[in-house]
Design a binder for these strands. Structure first.
Length: 798
RNA sequence: GCGGGCGUGGCGGAAUUGGCAGACGCACUAGACUUAGGAUCUAGCGCCGCGAGGUGUAAGGGUUCGACUCCCUUCGCCCGCACCA
């Protein structure tokens, strides 16, 4: 009889609805397996989305079989630009469009047959959810972590909103790809930099892909160095510079300040005033892309000289846009002999190059900057010292003179947190003329997003909310006088920075999460999602968690113990997208081959962490395999378990378990295929298979292909659900072969093969091998004999 | 430019971590069953060669009894960062 996937899948889906397989009992340990929740776009799911969801569901079901009570929830990251843009275009409320998309996504997710607990669904646009998103903001505000600032920020002219640094990729908007410009705006910022050190240090203990940890570490970008004060000749001012190379201080032959440095206009001399002001103005209008694109260094002399605090040397002060205003002190000492950029600048403007570090202690003509460590030269008392030592010695000396100190710097910047768009959480503060910025009272949360006539972004840096007077005008929570609401909204990352804390008790209206649920479920045991959030969502979520730890809401500092990044599914070498027209829909595949086949094929397609090319024809092979398994059980005549069956059973359990633990899910599937072929042969040979053998395999298959596994389990006379079992265990002793094939090599070349006992001694194996290849050894002397147990004999002969 | 990863048949990919390269699957070829086959079954399938055999994991070198695996050089592809002093 053929395997009827439609009938079986329908039957068991219905059965599970009435008899859930993941139920709580006092003896079960909780396990939290989480998917990165999707943005419910109007395009629906494709086979690429399936991959991650199948992966996490297989893992969840595996944990159920290992005796866990599993939390495997799903929800919606539903604020964001696409819904808003759609709303503008179609003149429907974003909430309406979002609700439709959610319904559609939910229907499509249903086809995966994952063990989602829909009672725990969350939606970031639900006021009962974003009440807590706002609550966290208020707490940050109270703790001085949320602050307002007017500054030039990244501005996407197409999305018409400000962006965080993390949202700018290669000078372009992460979402739409437009070139990002700068705009001076009043912004809400989150002081993520306060957590830089902890965010960096705590990476160490995480079971995350090294790549992601490294990306975060690089993003945080800690560097060690020194701050050094330079007096400016003829003024009372001192300019502080930051350097990671204090060992090169004697080689500083000029100084460069960022055009935006606050002292530029006060220091500039009258003669240079005009040209400097022009340069500063030009720099302010340059986009970050233009700034990067300019390979050639530019700059102008300020007319002033700084004094090298170590040797009193007079060095010219310049300004140039290759120095960044918001890193370090916004000014640098330049050592062209030992820095590529300074070298290029010195060459361009014909500034002196003084070598102070040398490989061999001798001075030489430099054609490029020497950036390696070496021996100090031209450096007064420090001459002859290894430069790595001087890196410590010079700052220590400066500290004793009170003209400098050791310090560290981070590339991480504070998080630009406000967006000038409609479809996001309102920032819960009001502006009062008397009291200043005042947080909304906790009991008045949530601050609901009002209905507006027009969702169009204004483009002026004001949110569309600013136009709704009756919403904007309110009273001050502090003095009761007239006040205006903040009209900026939060970025899309706000909700996703903490949503995983809400799943255990989404309807709790007393607190963000109860202590009991928090202790029971969190932190997340396994988090599955794409790598695109390596420095966005994953960094923000870690920051939020640390903050919530500091204010006592949670008792752990890291939200996700283990992270798995699934690879993309590509078609024609490209990521699936509607615009490229290479989207493969799961609907037809489910119809023709069934959910089980598609689930298994999603895993079989390649190593889960790598990108894989989709080939529609491949699913056929998995479908054939399931038919084989079906026949194996359906047509079986039960016989007592033989030694061969027992051995295969234990080998199968071992191989599947080991590969499972290693997350090598593609080889789990090929393993099933391999053993099924072996069992079919054995079945033919023995006239049938033992129930025990088939039952074990059925349990192992269950996380992957749950429907057919249930049906087979029933066929095999199993009681209840296949998921009521525990994951089978294996016994090394029982999988031992009586004989193994060993290759016999003569000096590394295969000469023969022999069957021997796996317990044979080296002497026995070599003796037998020699006998076997005696003819080929004639006239040669054996100089070395190697036996690798159960694998190979190598006779090295001359 | 800096940092990280990768390179194995026509294709997706295996290889117990230094021990028989190409498991498993797709595609393909031949055959069987069939009115029929886009079903199923059997066999074959890296390359050269009728064959014995030779050769082969991007290219070249090295270590080793033995290298897809370790080391060095080169080439190619992918990802991240973007003047962070």
């Amino acid at each position: 009889m053929q395997y009827n996937h439609k009938e079986i899948e329908q039957k068991w889906r219905k059965h599970w609805e009435e008899n859930p397989i993941n139920v709580e009992t006092p003896d079960k340990k909780p396990y939290y397996c989480l998917d990165m929740f999707p943005y419910p776009s109007g395009n629906g799911l494709h086979v690429g989305h399936w991959r991650g969801y199948v992966l996490s569901d297989v893992w969840s079901r595996y944990k159920v079989l290992q005796g866990h009570y599993v939390l495997h929830p799903m929800g919606w990251d539903a604020f964001g630009l696409p819904a808003e843009n759609y709303a503008i275009q179609k003149k429907v409320h974003p909430a309406t469009a979002t609700a439709e998309n959610v319904a559609n996504f939910k229907r499509q997710l249903h086809d995966i047959s994952a063990i989602y607990d829909w009672d725990k669904e969350v939606n970031t646009t639900d006021p009962e959810f974003y009440k807590w998103t706002q609550w966290i903001f208020l707490k940050m505000f109270e703790n001085g972590l949320a602050y307002e600032k007017e500054m030039p920020i990244n501005w996407c002219p197409s999305c018409k909103t400000g962006l965080a640094n993390e949202e700018v990729k290669e000078g372009c908007c992460e979402r739409c790809g437009s070139t990002v410009t700068k705009k001076n705006l009043r912004q809400w910022m989150l002081k993520i930099t306060k957590y830089a050190e902890r965010l960096l240090n705590d990476l160490e203990g995480l079971e995350w892909p090294e790549k992601v940890k490294k990306m975060q570490a690089d993003w945080i970008g800690k560097s060690y160095g020194a701050e050094i004060d330079f007096e400016i000749e003829g003024t009372d001012e001192k300019i502080k510079v930051f350097t990671t190379r204090p060992d090169t201080l004697y080689g500083a032959s000029f100084m460069v300040m960022a055009p935006e440095h606050k002292s530029v206009l006060s220091l500039v001399t009258d003669e240079q005033k005009e040209v400097v002001e022009k340069y500063v103005f030009d720099a302010s209008t340059k986009s970050s892309v233009d700034r990067m694109a300019d390979k050639e260094k530019t700059g102008v002399f300020l007319g002033r000289y700084a004094i090298n605090p170590l040797n009193g040397a007079k060095i010219p002060v310049w300004i140039s846009d290759y120095v960044l205003a918001d890193y370090g002190t916004g000014a640098i000492m330049c050592v062209p002999a030992h820095d590529d950029r300074d070298f290029a600048f010195a060459k361009k403007f014909d500034l002196p190059i003084i070598q102070v570090i040398s490989k061999d202690g001798k001075e030489a003509e430099l054609t490029e900057a020497y950036t390696e460590p070496g021996v100090m030269i031209n450096s007064g008392d420090f001459n002859g010292m290894p430069s790595e030592e001087a890196k410590k010695a010079i700052p220590e000396f400066l500290e004793t003179k009170n003209i400098g100190k050791k310090t560290t710097n981070y590339k991480l910047r504070d998080w630009v947190f406000s967006r000038q768009r409609y479809w996001g959480e309102p920032i819960p503060v009001v502006h009062c003329d008397k009291c200043g910025i005042v947080g909304v009272k906790e009991e008045d949360l949530p601050v609901r997003l009002p209905d507006v006539e027009s969702y169009e972004p204004t483009g002026t840096g004001e949110s569309p909310l600013a136009a709704i007077e009756e919403w904007v005008n309110t009273s001050c929570p502090c003095c009761g006088g007239p006040a205006k609401r903040e009209t900026n909204t939060m970025p899309q990352w706000a909700g996703s920075s903490w949503y995983f804390l809400r799943y255990p008790n989404p309807h709790n209206d007393k607190e963000l999460i109860s202590k009991e649920d928090m202790k029971k479920w969190l932190p997340v045991d396994m988090y599955v999602g794409g790598i695109e959030h390596a420095v966005l969502h994953l960094l923000y979520a870690r920051f939020y968690t640390k903050f919530l730890y500091d204010i006592g809401v949670v008792d752990f500092e890291e939200p996700f113990k283990r992270l798995f990044n699934q690879g993309m599914v590509t078609k024609a070498g490209a990521k699936m997208s509607k615009s490229k027209g290479n989207v493969v829909s799961p609907d037809e595949l489910v119809e023709n081959y069934g959910c089980d086949s598609l689930r298994m094929y999603e895993l079989f397609i390649g190593p889960p962490e790598l990108d894989s090319e989709w080939d529609d024809r491949g699913i056929e092979g998995v479908y054939r395999f399931l038919n084989k398994v079906w026949k194996l059980v359906d047509e079986n005549k039960e016989v007592p378990e033989t030694r061969d069956m027992e051995r295969i059973r234990h080998q199968l359990i071992r191989d599947i378990t080991v590969r499972m633990e290693g997350f090598n899910l593609n080889t789990v599937v090929s393993g099933f295929m391999e053993y099924t072929n072996k069992l079919l042969d054995l079945q033919k040979k023995e006239g049938g298979l033992a129930n025990e053998t088939l039952r074990s395999m059925t349990i192992l298959l269950a996380p992957f292909v749950p429907h057919i596994a249930e049906e087979l389990w029933a066929k095999l006379g199993g009681e209840g659900s296949v998921f009521a079992n525990t994951w089978p265990t294996y016994d090394e002793a029982k999988m031992k072969e009586d004989e193994v094939e060993v290759a016999v090599q003569i000096t590394g070349k295969i000469a023969a093969r022999m069957m021997i006992s796996p317990d044979a001694t080296q002497e026995e194996a070599i003796a037998k091998a020699k006998e076997l290849v005696a003819a080929k050894l004639e006239g040669k002397t054996i100089v070395k004999e190697i036996y690798v147990k159960g694998r190979i004999v190598n006779l090295v002969a001359k």
